[in-house]
Write a protein that binds this DNA or RNA. Structure first.
Lengths: 144, 144
DNA sequence: ATAATAAAAGATATCATTGTCTTTTATGTT
DNA sequence: AACATAAAAGACAATGATATCTTTTATTAT
């Protein structure tokens, strides 16, 4: 479904959100340990997320990554996925055709559109804050 | 969503089904031209589909690939996808966790399960014959 | 100012998927 | 039997995603 980059990116963002909600910035090392991801690779992904204003970062001692609580209210999963995987998940044809739309569809097109629309809605309607609140329930996890 | 192998495999199977329905076997060359796929790579995929009894093949002159009409009634897309991509599409965690289930879920688990269930139903309830019949409408296409 | 910390940036390596090429096997035709 | 056709099988190559390593830049504390 998502690329590895996107999977790590989503997990990292959720963890950063969780910690930011508690008022603490987190370092790369802390993040990659918390979500069980390759550190250097995670660094690259965080760079992309920072460039695209999904997360904030501060260099130097006591620096790290964080997200403002206000931003968490409006940040939805769709934005994160688009930064890391582009919009292929929304527009791509299930059978891999370059041209596939309502006018010139592949045989699976209409069946796919329906499912994709739901995925889209789910990603757009789920904010980071919602997930961060869920995480407090202690049933959900981000590693292994 | 699906791997390239699976995309080509689905397109090839639909084309073979379509032609078999008209009573003609098709060669590798014909298939790869009809669905606009790399020929040698398509050959490998067809080998897998043949081994797994998704399609039939006959060697030698006037040989080629075909599917019995009876088989098309019961062959669903899920079976093809499982041969080429395994069951990761059904069981894999959206965030890439190795362990993610109702008992120990990732924060997206329940939202994902709902969508995946629909995808699963769609693939299981769509038979090749349905698609082959749709193809006769002449609105659907398998290339570019 | 110097040293320490931590992210950013750039270069490089590894791996799985995708894709190609060559040889072999099976089958039908002359 | 010899030849032509077409899939099967095996070896090999290219590509993109994944992952690592090193150097640079920014910031803080001493």
């Amino acid at each position: 479904m998502f690329s590895k980059s996107c999977e790590y990116g989503l997990r990292a963002t959720i963890f950063i959100g969780q910690q930011s909600h508690l008022g603490t910035k987190v370092s790369l090392t802390t993040i990659s340990e918390a979500i069980d991801s390759p550190q250097a690779f995670t660094a690259k992904i965080l760079q992309q997320l920072t460039k695209n204003n999904i997360v904030n970062s501060i260099k130097g001692p006591h620096g790290g990554f964080f997200i403002e609580t206000e931003a968490m209210k409006t940040l939805n999963l769709s934005a994160i996925v688009e930064v890391l995987d582009g919009d292929s998940i929304y527009t791509g044809c299930g059978l891999g055709l370059k041209q596939c739309n309502d006018k010139k569809p592949c045989p699976l097109h209409f069946k796919f559109v329906a499912i994709r629309e739901e995925l889209k809605n789910m990603l757009q309607n789920t904010t980071l804050l919602m997930l961060v609140n869920d995480m407090e329930l202690d049933i959900f996890h981000l590693k292994t």
